[in-house]
Design a protein around this nucleic acid. Structure first.
Lengths: 341, 341
DNA sequence: TTGTACGCGTTATCAG
DNA sequence: CTGATAACGCGTACAA
C-alpha cells in the first residue's frame, strides 16, 4: 500500500546510491550540488514521498504525540485538542488522537496501538479504575495524564481542582441568596464528577449550613440536564442549581425556561468547564473556567519536556501541576435583587 | 524511544524462536498451547507492546486513516470528526488528524507526513488552489476529498451543494417577506464560501427580483458576524440576513439584539451548516443542514471501500457523491406576521 | 563526497 | 508445529 515509490527508486532514477539520495532529500550538506539537484528532480518527477513508518523505525522518532480522550469531539474535548494543537504546531509535532468512549479497556487498547507510532502520550481517563492503566502501559514511553483526580497514580499529570471549584460554585450561589441549592451530577464512575459532587456536599455544610443535599444524577449531556429539571417540576423547586458541567447547565436552563421559570431570578444556574457555547446561551451561563485550552497546551509542554530529556516514567519528580478553576459569573446566576426564597 | 522491550526479548524470555512468539501473540492457530501460554506469560511479565511502526512496515497495513481538516477543533470540524470516528470505530480503524490552518502548503506537508503511516486519507481543503494538491500527492494512496467544490479535481469526493443551499436560504427569506436581504460572506479564497455567495446573488435575481446585493465580508468567525452587523448600523438596515455559516449568524444575531433590534421581527437570520450550538442560541438559528456528521461518516465509508479494493486514485469512476443541504427553519427566521419592510 | 552494509522490530516464507 | 531468514523502507556508521 502506502507510497509505491521508494527512496531506492529515486536513487536509481538519479543514478546515485540510496545513501546519497537520502542525504540529498534530508538536506544534509555533504552532497554535491549536482547530485542534490539530480535527486530532487527525480524525487519530484516520481512523486516520491518518504515512508513514515520506515523512517520512524530507523530513527526511533515519529514527531507525533498520541492523545487519548474519552471522546474526540464536542465542545469540551475540542477545546483541549485546540490547546494541544497550538503547542504541537509550534514544535512541529503531529497528533494521533483516539477516543476511549468512557471505557478503560478501549483506552488501554488505544495506548497499545500507539506504541511505536508516537513519541509520547497525553491521556485523559477519568475512570474510577484508571489506576489499572498504569500497569498495562508500554515501558519507556513518556506520558502525561490530563485532569486526573489528585494523586491517583504517580504519573506526571495536570490536575484540575474539581473539588475546590465546586466549593466556589456553592459559595457563589449562596452569596447570591440561594437557600435551596441542587446539584446535577456527572457519571457515577467519573472521578472528576465525583470530586465535584464532594465539593457540592461540603459546600452546603460550610458556615454551619444545614440544607439537605439535593442530587440529581446526570451523565454530562445536555439532555440529562434537561431531564433533571423536568423531574424537579413536580416538587419544590430549588432556587439554585449547580451542574457538574456546562452542557447539563445548558440543558437545565433550557428546561427551566420552558417551564416558565426565569433564570436567574427563580433559579440561579452555574455550570463547570467554561466551554465556548456558554456565552451564546440565553442567559449566558455562569461557570468555572478550568482553562480547558490551557490544560491541553500545558500538558503538551510538560510532555515535550519529558520527551526531550529522553525520560520515561521513572525520572525525578512527577512534575505534576494543579489548576484551580476560576469562577466566571454571568447572567445565569447574577441576581440584582435579593433572593425571593 | 518507543517500547524498549521487543518481541525478541519476549521470545528469549519464553525460550522460543521469535517466529513462534509472533504467532502466539497474533493468535495464529499453529502453535502449541504450551508455547502460547509461555509466550503470553512472558509478554505480560515484560509488559511487551508491539511496535506499531515496525508492524506497519512489515505488513503494509496501519489500520489508521489520516484526516486533514482546515482545523481540528470547533463546532463544525468537531462534528465531522465525530462522523468519521463512529465509522472508524466500527471498522477498527484509528485516526491521525492534522489541521492545515487554512493554508494549502500546510495541507501538503500534512499529507506527506502521513504517507506510510496511514492506509488512506480524508482531506478537506476548500482552497482556491486546491487543484495543486492533487499533483503533490503520494501515488497509490487512497484518498477522498470532503466537501470539495463540485468537480474541481477528479478525485473521489463528497460534494456539498453549497450553491443550492444558499439559493434555498434566499428563497426562504423572501417567503418570510424579506425585501432587503444582506449576505455575510466567508473567506474570499474559500471555495465553499464562494459557492454560497453565488447562490445568494443568483437567488436575489430569481423571479424577476431586482434587489441590489448587499455583501458584507466575513471570515467564518462569530466576531466577523458581529462586526458585520455593527457596520450595518449606520445605514439602512436590511430585513433579512443570510450568513455563510452558523458562527457568523450567531455573532450577527447577538449584534442585532445588542443594537436593540429583534430577530426575526426586524431582521430574519439564516445560517449554514447546522452546528449544534444553533439550538441553544436565542433565538435558535435557522440554517442549512449540510449533514456535517453524515459527511464525515460517508467519506469514511467511501474511503474504506477504496482501501479494501486496493484502489488508489486510478480506478473506475471517482464515485463522488453530492449532498444537498436541507433547510431547517427555526425561530430566527420564522415570522408569524407579514414583513414590515 | 560517495557508496556499502547493517540495524530498527515485525511479519511471512520456507525448510525442517 | 517450529525455527532460521528474507523482506519492509529508511538512516547512518564505516570504509573507500
Amino acid at each position: 500500500m502506502a507510497a509505491g515509490v521508494t527512496l531506492n527508486d529515486v536513487a536509481k532514477a538519479a543514478g546515485v546510491s540510496i545513501a546519497s539520495a537520502s542525504r540529498a532529500i534530508n538536506g544534509l550538506d555533504n552532497v554535491t550540488e549536482e547530485i542534490r539537484d539530480r535527486v530532487l528532480a527525480a524525487a519530484g518527477r516520481l512523486k516520491y514521498v518518504p515512508h513514515g513508518a520506515a523512517r520512524a523505525l530507523a530513527m526511533s522518532r515519529t514527531n507525533t504525540i498520541g492523545v487519548i480522550l474519552p471522546d474526540i469531539y464536542g465542545e469540551f474535548f475540542s477545546e483541549i485538542i485546540r490547546g494541544i494543537d497550538v503547542g504541537a504546531r509550534a514544535r512541529g509535532l503531529h497528533i494521533l488522537v483516539s477516543g476511549s468512549h468512557g471505557d478503560l479497556n478501549e483506552a488501554v487498547t488505544a495506548v497499545r496501538s500507539m506504541a511505536g507510532r508516537v513519541d509520547g502520550l497525553l491521556v485523559m481517563a477519568p475512570y474510577a479504575n484508571a489506576g489499572d492503566l498504569a500497569g498495562k502501559l508500554p515501558v519507556n514511553l513518556p506520558l502525561v495524564m490530563m485532569g486526573g483526580s489528585a494523586g491517583q497514580a504517580d504519573l506526571p499529570s495536570l490536575i484540575i481542582d474539581n473539588y475546590g471549584g465546586a466549593l466556589d460554585a456553592v459559595r457563589h450561589l449562596r452569596e447570591q441568596g440561594c437557600r435551596r441549592i441542587a446539584h446535577i451530577s456527572g457519571p457515577e464512575n467519573n472521578l472528576e464528577a465525583q470530586d465535584r459532587l464532594r465539593g457540592y456536599l461540603d459546600g452546603l455544610k460550610e458556615n454551619g449550613g444545614t440544607q439537605e443535599p439535593i442530587v440529581l444524577s446526570g451523565d454530562f449531556t445536555d439532555n440529562a440536564g434537561y431531564a433533571a429539571v423536568r423531574g424537579l417540576l413536580r416538587g419544590t423547586m430549588p432556587d439554585g442549581l449547580f451542574a457538574a458541567n456546562d452542557m447539563m447547565a445548558l440543558g437545565a436552563s433550557l428546561g427551566l425556561r420552558e417551564a416558565g421559570l426565569s433564570v436567574p431570578e427563580d433559579v440561579a444556574v452555574v455550570g463547570f468547564d467554561d466551554i465556548p457555547v456558554t456565552r451564546y446561551a440565553s442567559p449566558p451561563i455562569s461557570t468555572l473556567r478550568a482553562g480547558v485550552f490551557d490544560i491541553g497546551q500545558r500538558s503538551l509542554e510538560l510532555l515535550s519536556v519529558l520527551i526531550e530529556r529522553g525520560d520515561a516514567e521513572g525520572g525525578p519528580p512527577p512534575a505534576s501541576q494543579t489548576v484551580r478553576p476560576e469562577l466566571v459569573v454571568r447572567a445565569s446566576s447574577r441576581r440584582l435583587s435579593p433572593s425571593n426564597a
